[in-house]
Design a protein around this nucleic acid. Sequence first.
DNA 1: CCCCCCCC
Length: 574
Amino acid sequence: MDTYKLSEGALRTIMQGGQVDCPIMQVLGSKKIATLSSDKERYRILLSDGLFHISFAMFTTQINEKVESGELPMFSVIKIKRYITSVINNAGRSDKYDYPFNGGTCHYEDLSFQVVLVILDLEVIASGDKVTKKIGEPEPLPEDDLSNTAMKQAPWIIKARVTNKSNIRTWSNSRGEGKLFSMDLVDESGEIRATAFRDLVDKFYDYLEIDKVYYISKCQLKPANKQFTSLKNDYEMTLTNESIIQLCEDDVDSIPQTQYNFLTVDKIGQMETGSIVDVIGVCKAVSDLQTFQARSTGRELKKKELTLVDHTDNAISVTLWGQEAENFDGTSNPIIAIKGAKVGEFGGGKNLGTTMNGILKINPDIPEAHRLRGWYDNSGMHKEMKNLSARTGGNFDAQWMNFKEVREQNLGHSERGDYFQVCATILLLRSESILYKACPVEECNKKVVDMENGMFRCEKCCREYPNFKYRLLGSVNVGDFSGNQWLSMFSGEVEKVLGMSAAEVGKAYDEDKSAMTEIANKANFKQFVFRCRAKYEMYNDENRLKTVAVRVEPVNHKEYNNYLISKINQLMGN
DNA sequence: CCCCCCCC
């Protein structure tokens, strides 16, 4: 009689998630099993690798035919050419399980599952009729290994630490109303956000505590909206009626605490307004608590502004709100770590604000904090910082508007002018007086008088120069769906609109004085975002509204669409 | 299914 060498130990490797290439195994038995969802027959196979055996191997339907046609009698030796392991849910079996997990134990009463080996393709090495007996003395694969595998492979169970939990919030909009809370979860592999709605809030909110570790199973996964989270995960979880959450008190040290993706302060200066970032720095200064009314809601708001600095020698203002502001004490220059701070803009400077989803920690016990402590106490505290929140003056906060709103709101009466930005199309750029000869002095730009003797006189500098520089002056009619408006622009903005430098336009003029119309026409029907300052100014004894496009930029469609969407929501009363 | 997070 022939002897057959089986792949001893292969089952343990496979059932623990490992790979074995074409293992040789022996079929020790098969049993028809009832299936609810399929009308096809299924077989549960007792399978041996000579060392261990398992009783929950399965064949695909095609291979089942081999069983039925008698090609796989008991004791057959097979080469498994393709296989997968899968977890099936035995809900309803109501077994009590103590699942060993990462050295600890997890108790489940209502959750039961099984890892099965599904054989996709096989080759019969020897028919059982020929082999006729069990090879070796295989024992059942130890339960511990299986349970571990089940825990690791089941996509619907995680062991994670709750690093943040929101307040319960209610909402009401056209799609309905309800309440919700969300939490941040962290395990060795990463982080994810989970949200519970409506009655699941009552079911789980009090049970879940920040910093504790839980087994969480059977949640829905959906793509995460990156706009609203700084967590590094493409998905987020939604709790369902099936979800099971179980406190885990053993072996929780291996589950990490909050995971940060810190940006240094200098980098925050380059972030777009509205982005969500993690930051760590030293609280160099803190304002008093300020109380004021929100203009939009009339609600009383409380805030504290602190100045955060780091080893890049940059400083940024961070606004804390409400309770967090009231409780904050920055007198000892603590290290502040914030996960999920929102980048804002004011007067051309950048700032940060804490948000509902963010976490603020004071003097956290993490390496970055210790490094910053050392840096600040040794040298940082004496250094001069570049303040990213400083108002640059050239870049004022500008509300999105359309021209109808500009007209209706009667802008231009304030001392420093009223700023707005509008997405509009150039209808006409006047070609007359578009070009002028300006003082060659860097910062002057005053129009010079041609002395007709090769010299150019600047009235501002009270000097004559042998040269001049060309500059542009724009008078442009721009329109959107609601109206149009004459704007004036200085040289740099006209250059952007024309896609030509002032020197190039000047050269074209020198070569052909009639070229200006054609050049000005290049601007027509181009679309830009015009950031404008409207201000009433006296002109020939007449108080006239002057609107200057202080900055012309290509349309940032993402930002503009966000504005339009919020506008639509407003109109719908959301 | 939320996603408002405020002010100068």
